[in-house]
Write a protein that binds this DNA or RNA. Structure first.
Lengths: 236, 236
DNA sequence: ACCTGAACACCGTTCAAGT
DNA sequence: ACCTGAACACCGTTCAAGT
């Protein structure tokens, strides 16, 4: 056994586009998307940063590839959940597909923000949306209305949570919290009222009181039902 | 008159947090958000990068401040459009507010992406959402339902277009285009079908065929109507 | 064919120093 | 009080060079 005291030996198979992209996803999962630099990625693979450029054009290509890996995982998850073939309600199929996609994005929380920065659309991504369109079309939507439907869903169609200002760190002390709220009451009566009403309904919650999964499904169902109503109305 | 041959003289008033932030917005408008570096920003102001640190804590604080400037512009635009006080339909008020906010974001196209990266929520931003909540509450929503409504709107409540994969550069040659489509037809029947149907309805459009404003309003109205139906149903 | 070292032009930021 | 120069630890990327 050769002496190896390197901090990160990492069985040194030859590099590969695949290995590079997989390492990139792992790195982002483990240390966040900001840690995904060419130098860190290379170290992860036991190589030098410059070696990566033999397998990928540049960092942008790495990011494109990483999104592709995620979209592939989504496609896999979606086709795995799609088992019940006897379902005739397009809303049920759509819903379960989107929720499956969402689960993947929850496993890679950096991914949705990254996906939004892509300008080109890869075949893997096209496949996802093509199948979604297929569900609508099979459900009685004209392609024209299906087109509007896809826009109405927007990024929610991939399972994105739409939240602005995710709490991120709801670790603020309780006293600072109530103090801030007192100051808030005057300036922002409705925000204050809302928080008080919700706190009354469910005393356990002060901050971090939003059930993301519930809110996502609420918004999704609202849109799906609106689309179904539009479809029936337009007879298309 | 003193000799001045500097490329960017820029009347050299003392720096100010306000001047720094305004220059930052101008710079992002003119050259894109990536050009907003501390060094570029300083040059814009006829100063050195290090001088900025006397007025702002760091770059993150600049970005927070920039978002605040934009949110202030939104609040101004919203209150300017809010003139008709006799309107009793909350949907009309909500719609016009959100469309006004959207116009501001269209003037600063880099802004929505930046806003999404903020973790803290400033008073200026709170004001916007507080007023939006006020419209819902005045329209007969319980704060609890209004809360769900805000989640359902998500970033659309600020006028964000939800589009994944904005075309960005729809400058692809027509021949490459049709070639790509031919290849696509097999793999992505529904995307192909959709494009053909839309092209048939409106022959002028092949790519860049989406009317963003129409799609935004379609999706927005879908949600607003869904919320109104939910409100009536829940009797809240 | 695959990998690397040295180097370049950038970042944000610190710190001691200038006026 | 306000601004700056030099320096540090990072980036992505090039290019000529190694095996």
């Amino acid at each position: 056994m050769a002496t190896q005291t390197e901090p990160r030996p990492r069985a040194r198979d030859p590099l590969t586009r695949e290995r590079v992209l997989r390492a990139a996803v792992d790195l982002a999962d483990r240390e966040g998307i900001d840690a995904l630099t060419m130098r860190n990625l290379a170290r992860e693979l036991g190589a030098e940063a410059m070696s990566l450029y033999y397998h990928v054009a540049n960092k942008e290509a790495v990011l494109d590839g990483v999104v592709d890996v995620i979209m592939d995982e989504i496609n896999r998850a979606v086709s795995a959940v799609d088992v019940p073939p006897a379902t005739e309600d397009w809303k049920v199929v759509m819903r379960s597909r989107i929720l499956a996609a969402r689960e993947v994005l929850l496993r890679h929380r950096w991914a949705s923000r990254l996906i939004e920065t892509r300008t080109a659309i890869s075949p893997t991504t096209m496949r996802y949306f093509d199948e979604l369109l297929g569900v609508l079309h099979a459900g009685g939507f004209s392609y024209d209305l299906a087109h509007h439907a896809m826009h109405a869903l927007g990024s929610r169609g991939l399972g994105f949570t739409q939240e602005l200002f995710e709490p991120e760190n709801a670790d603020e002390g309780d006293e600072e919290m109530t103090e801030a709220m007192a100051e808030m009451a005057g300036q922002f009566p409705h925000l204050t009222g809302m928080m008080m009403e919700v706190a009354h309904d469910d005393p356990d919650s002060t901050l971090g009181w939003c059930d993301d999964q519930f809110e996502f499904e609420f918004g999704l169902d609202l849109i799906l039902e609106g689309l179904e109503a539009t479809r029936q109305r337009s007879g298309a």
